[in-house]
Nucleic acid binder design. Structure first.
Lengths: 239, 239
DNA sequence: CGTACAATTGAGAATCCTCAAGAGCAGTGG
DNA sequence: CCACTGCTCTTGAGGATTCTCAATTGTACG
């Protein structure tokens, strides 16, 4: 095995309230921590798992970020989502025990590994862990619904604005600035995720910059007018 | 309460293997059946629940079909998915206990209601029910991923072809014909779901008919060349 | 400093949308 | 039985957005 097995630090983890331990008693968090394996850090573009792999574990992002994508028969990837700290990766594999997508690190990153067999056992022992597990699954589903919403019937500009707002919200939940952050993904990843081309992404970001809503400098994004950005997402709530 | 409470018939239900009872022992299925409430049938366009409602239950489709949609601030709907018999509705509400979308019947339909509090209790008592619950949640997630795949970077024709194949697969699982079925939704629903306009849907269906892949007669669809239809979905697997 | 890669910008082309009219079908009432 | 109304669906023509292809600029790293 390519990972070091040592006690995880859920009880002292700053991400606990965003992650599985939320709503658990102190001793329950300790039981959870006992089954968590801390994997070695992943480098940029390093695979966490590959589409088709047998799934033994879920992963919680501890640091850095990831992108998940599905390969079609041509070998083209379609990005399904980006994952930030505190979020759970690999939930799709609960269906058949195989990952239906691949996940790679967008930057240096680390994860906590949660072996499924032990996690399932613990869920039957700790009802509130099961509840939280269901809550996280429900969250994943409704966030996927948001992505479907994003890709249906929306213009390129609306997609970009929505994408930036989604990130803003998640960074805020993490305790970071919601108005100034660095994109950990390339333009091509954003384009792929939004169902656009890289050129359109570039142009629309420039557009948003030109009207003063945001300031873009390479990977750095600053939101100057959050209200206007939200108005672009829901063009009809202003009129 | 607007529903009759009487014993459900999970043990004799033909949909059991597609639904929650899959993988359960006989006596476990009986325990599950004991908490299921059979709601009265729903008429066409009748609401199962409304976006924002507090969620007390999940619903399993017993007969007919449903569409789920999210309303934006303008009151426009975006359809998130269609549900056929054996499928579970309302999973998104596991996150916060509120439905994040509305669900209405596409035709005369009926559902089995699963009260969440009792379902959760039963899950802790029956580990294999919990496993199956997770499997269904994983399925919902990976089916949502398929929808994201569908909406990103695909032409109108590819979307239509994918849509028809998705239905074909699901009808097959239900024991119906995979090559001849009736669409329970209107063109406008298909268009909305696929992120297209109703005119484009109509034109592309006509196109697919013209090249002989399918035959469309109102709501009736017949797939004449399944292989070619699949080739349209993955245009590069042929070249 | 030069290479490799990422991102931007421009011009023309294709797809899909918008607007508009017409066809098909179901239900109602004379 | 047939016309009438309302609705869904189809078909056509022009226009807008986004894509494709191509060249240029910018940035990171050896």
């Amino acid at each position: 095995m390519d990972y070091k097995v040592h006690q995880a630090s859920c009880p002292s983890c700053k991400l606990a309230d965003l992650c599985l331990p939320y709503g658990l008693q102190k001793n329950e968090v300790q039981q959870l921590a006992a089954i968590v394996k801390n994997k070695r850090p992943l480098q940029i573009d390093e695979l966490l798992y590959r589409q088709g792999d047998v799934s033994q574990s879920l992963y919680a992002v501890k640091a850095g970020s990831f992108r998940s994508f599905i390969l079609n028969s041509e070998g083209m990837e379609q990005i399904i989502g980006f994952y930030l700290p505190g979020e759970l990766i690999g939930l799709d594999a609960l269906q058949h025990g195989q990952y239906t997508c691949s996940t790679v690190a967008l930057e240096t990153a680390s994860v906590c590994e949660l072996p499924l067999s032990q996690l399932n056992d613990l869920c039957t022992k700790i009802p509130s862990l099961q509840i939280q597990m269901n809550r996280i699954l429900g969250k994943e589903i409704s966030s996927d619904h948001d992505k479907i919403l994003l890709l249906g019937h929306r213009s390129a500009k609306e997609r970009l604005a929505t994408f930036l707002l989604m990130l803003s919200t998640r960074y805020l939940a993490l305790g970071f600035s919601s108005t100034e952050f660095n994109l950990s993904m390339q333009r091509q990843h954003i384009a792929n995720f939004l169902g656009l081309t890289i050129e359109t992404v570039s142009r629309q970001l420039a557009e948003l910059g030109k009207i003063g809503v945001i300031t873009v400098r390479q990977r750095g994004v600053q939101i100057n007018d959050l209200k206007l950005l939200k108005a672009i997402v829901e063009p009809c709530s202003v009129s």
